[in-house]
Every structure is written in structure tokens, then in C-alpha cells.
Simulated assay, not measured.
Amino acid sequence: MTETLRSLRDQPYALLAELDRTLRAARFEAAEGQFWTGLAFRLGEDGFVVPGDDVREVLTPMPVTRVPGAAEWLLGVANVRGDLLPVCDLRALAGYPRGETDRDSRVVVFHHPQAPLGFLVDGVYGHRQFVPGDQKHALADSAPAPLRDWLLGAFVREGSSWRVLSLHRLAASAQLTHVAA
């Protein structure tokens, strides 16, 4: 590494880029295994996180076209940059009382190569990091069905509870695969 940096001494931009790359790699290696990061959101008053790799993007709610004969939790399909995106009301799907879509509501888009899905949530808080000591699996075990089947675990951090939701488990669940009302 030192030889590489010396060879770039007369190229300040390339030198800075190499230093940045080296520092980022070192920071990633130092932090690997020390914390877990997920995208935090809420349903009602309950906090959830999903693994960051499960999320393609977060969108503001968009107009959807209702699908005749579909379950109530399937809000419809939306046109997102020319692609059709099924949008589900995660609150209704998980057994929560139906809420109103407001300015805090967001659509979390599941990153799935064959069938992306959008899940309407009550609000998104951004990314949260957790350390192993934050794990509290009893929170996941005490969740009501069907939610319990979709959980990977739970965390408590700074007095807030966060259940870890697997969008992969949710997408493969019987509830989601049977959309007929």
C-alpha cells in the first residue's frame, strides 16, 4: 500500500482517491461483525427494522390501480418508472388496524430480482445500527401471529424496541401468496 501511495505523489487527485478507498476498506474491516444495520420503520406505534440488503428503495406513496377480487391488504399496482409494482398494506397484512396514509407514510420496496414488492408503512426512520448486546429475542417470540413467522429476532436500543422483519419470509408466506379475497 505504501508503494502505491508513493507512486501517486505527483497525482494529488489519484492520491486522495486511493487514500479514501484504503480508509473505507479499513473502516469496513474493523467494523465487520461488530454491528448490524437495518432500515427502521414503524407500523402504528411499533418499531421494526429490515436488513438493508432487502430494501431496493423507499418511495412516497403513489397512485395505485386496485386489482379486482384481490385481498384488502393488496392496495393495487403502481407504475414506478415504467415497471408495475404490487403495493401491499403491511399494516393490514400483519393484522394491525387499518390506518390512514399520511405525509409520513412510505412504500418500502423489497429488493427481489424476479418480483419486487412495495410495502406501505406508517413511517421510515432511516438506518439503525445494533450491537450483539442489543439482541432481545423474547420480543420476537412474543409477537402475534402471523407477524411472528416473519421475524428474525429483535433489538432494544436506547429504550426503543425494534423487531427484525424478514421481507424474504414475508414474500414467501402463505398470506402473501394467496391474494384472492
Rank of each mutant, 00 (worst) to 15 (best):
R42G: 05
P61N: 02
L93Q: 04
A174S: 14
E45M: 03
W73I: 03
Q11S: 13
L152R: 08
T4G: 00
A26C: 06
W162Q: 02
D53M: 12
T2K: 15
D104V: 04
Q175G: 06
W162D: 00
G52I: 13
F28G: 00
R24I: 08
M62I: 15
E3G: 11
G126R: 13
S160F: 13
M1G: 11
T37L: 12
D54L: 00
V50K: 01
P116T: 05
R91M: 03
V164L: 06
D141V: 08
L85K: 03
S161T: 02
G99L: 08
G44Q: 09
G153F: 00
P146F: 06
D20W: 09
L120V: 05
A172K: 09
G47M: 11
E3F: 12
P144T: 11
A70N: 07
R24S: 14
F35R: 10
L84T: 06
L23N: 13
L165M: 04
Q175M: 10
V179D: 08
L8T: 06
H112M: 07
L5A: 13
R98N: 02
A40G: 13
A71R: 11
R148Y: 00
E57Q: 14
L74W: 02
T22W: 15
G47W: 12
A26H: 14
T2S: 14
A154F: 03
A154S: 05
G82S: 02
L39S: 05
R128M: 15
G159F: 09
A145V: 02
D104S: 13
L23W: 14
G44L: 11
A138G: 00
V131Y: 11
A143H: 00
V109M: 04
D122M: 10
Q135T: 06
V121D: 01
G69S: 12
H178T: 01
L84A: 08
G38Y: 11
L23Y: 15
L19I: 14
S160D: 11
F130D: 02
Y125K: 09
A71G: 06
H178C: 01
V49K: 04
T2V: 15
S7I: 05
P86A: 06
P63N: 08
A115N: 02
A92F: 04
L117E: 09
P12W: 07
V80L: 10
R128D: 07
G126Y: 09
L170F: 06
A143P: 03
D10V: 00
P86S: 07
R169F: 02
P61E: 03
A40D: 09
E72N: 12
T37P: 00
V107D: 09
K136V: 12
R42C: 07
V77S: 10
G52A: 15
T4I: 15
D46F: 10
G133D: 13
P61H: 01
V131E: 15
A140H: 00
D53Y: 10
Q34I: 00
S105D: 12
L75K: 08
A14S: 10
V77R: 08
P97F: 12
A92L: 13
H112C: 04
E57L: 11
R24N: 12
V108F: 09
L176Q: 07
V50D: 02
L167F: 07
V87F: 06
L120G: 07
T101G: 01
S7N: 14
T60D: 10
